[in-house]
């Protein structure tokens, strides 16, 4: 029983981290219509900056720099590349982001090389015990931070001018701009937010129980795409739901791999999110919480 509980808690905390990344996909998509295939690299970038900088400036300042670095990168990608696309179509933008991803990921991979960089997180490999269930401290922290982050997002989007303006711009850009809302500014804010969330997720994805910062992190960030699609393309709350479902699914499939192997084969935990995603796209193309207009079939 405690094994199951541990798997569930693990899955939920991992899912919350995924939802941070998924929320980044959703925010960028709603604010600029871009399917950001480079988001995984931005996650890696945030973690990389922390790993490289913590020996000199300390862990927490390094985290701040990581967040800033990821945010600025996002803003620049949007301002310099997306806004200057010769052909402003969603597919073209998606392919552009594949190009950006290749460049970013290749450069980061080259810098990291074959090593696994340590993150220098003060919580190290410690574990928190709840009765006979034990969880890595990093995961517990991740859950807490994620909850705080989403509370912050909720406040931003429902209680501040900037957030309401962003929602207006996402709903109907041309009309919002008639109210004096500068779309370039709301778009930049969206990309910056996604970058900050990515860096935070990057820190938790690379601290214990993960070995450290390695290029594969960008790929595991890819697992947030099913979470995003599942929740709905334009929905931040959907990202939370999607993240939890995907996190739980992977954790359970991986945790019970031995039992499932005869039917599903080894390593199904990595594939399960994508299977879920294909099914969702087929049955409910706008996701669980997405608005219908997001997908016109």
């Amino acid at each position: 029983m405690s094994y199951l509980l541990e798997q569930v808690l693990n899955g939920l905390s991992y899912g919350l981290v995924l939802s941070l990344i998924a929320a980044g996909f959703a925010i960028v998509f709603t604010s600029t219509g871009v399917l950001n295939f480079a988001h995984g690299s931005v996650v890696l970038l945030g973690a990389y900056l922390v790993a490289v900088l913590h020996p000199t400036i300390g862990f927490w300042p390094a985290v701040l720099v990581g967040m800033a670095g990821s945010a600025v990168t996002g803003v620049l990608i949007n301002a310099v590349l997306v806004r200057n696309l010769a052909d402003r179509k969603p597919d073209t933008a998606a392919i552009l982001m594949l190009g950006v991803d290749i460049v970013l990921l290749t450069e980061l991979t080259r810098r990291i090389g074959n090593q696994v960089l340590t993150l220098g997180a003060p919580w190290g490999a410690s574990v928190v015990r709840f009765g006979d269930v034990s969880l890595p401290t990093g995961r517990v922290l991740a859950a807490g931070v994620t909850v705080v982050a989403f509370a912050g997002l909720w406040y931003l989007f429902s209680r501040t001018d900037l957030g309401v303006g962003m929602r207006a711009a996402a709903a109907d850009g041309p009309t919002a701009s008639l109210m004096g809302i500068r779309l370039s500014r709301t778009a930049a804010t969206g990309w910056a937010l996604a970058g900050v969330l990515a860096a935070v997720a990057g820190v938790f994805l690379t601290s214990f129980p993960a070995p450290g910062v390695a290029p594969t992190v960008a790929l595991s960030a890819f697992a947030a795409i099913p979470a995003w699609v599942l929740g709905g393309f334009d929905s931040v709350p959907g990202a939370v739901v999607g993240g939890l479902v995907i996190g739980l699914t992977s954790a359970l499939v991986t945790g019970y791999e031995a039992e499932l192997e005869p039917f599903l084969g080894t390593g199904f935990g990595e594939v399960a999110p994508y299977v879920v995603m294909i099914v969702v796209l087929l049955v409910r193309p706008s996701g669980l919480l997405g608005s219908k207009e997001a997908v016109r079939v």
Binding site: L85, A86, L98, G99, D101, I102
Partner: peptide
Amino acid sequence: YGLAIIAVLV
């Protein structure tokens, strides 16, 4: 070729 994609699209 990552740069090439970006350049072509922009």
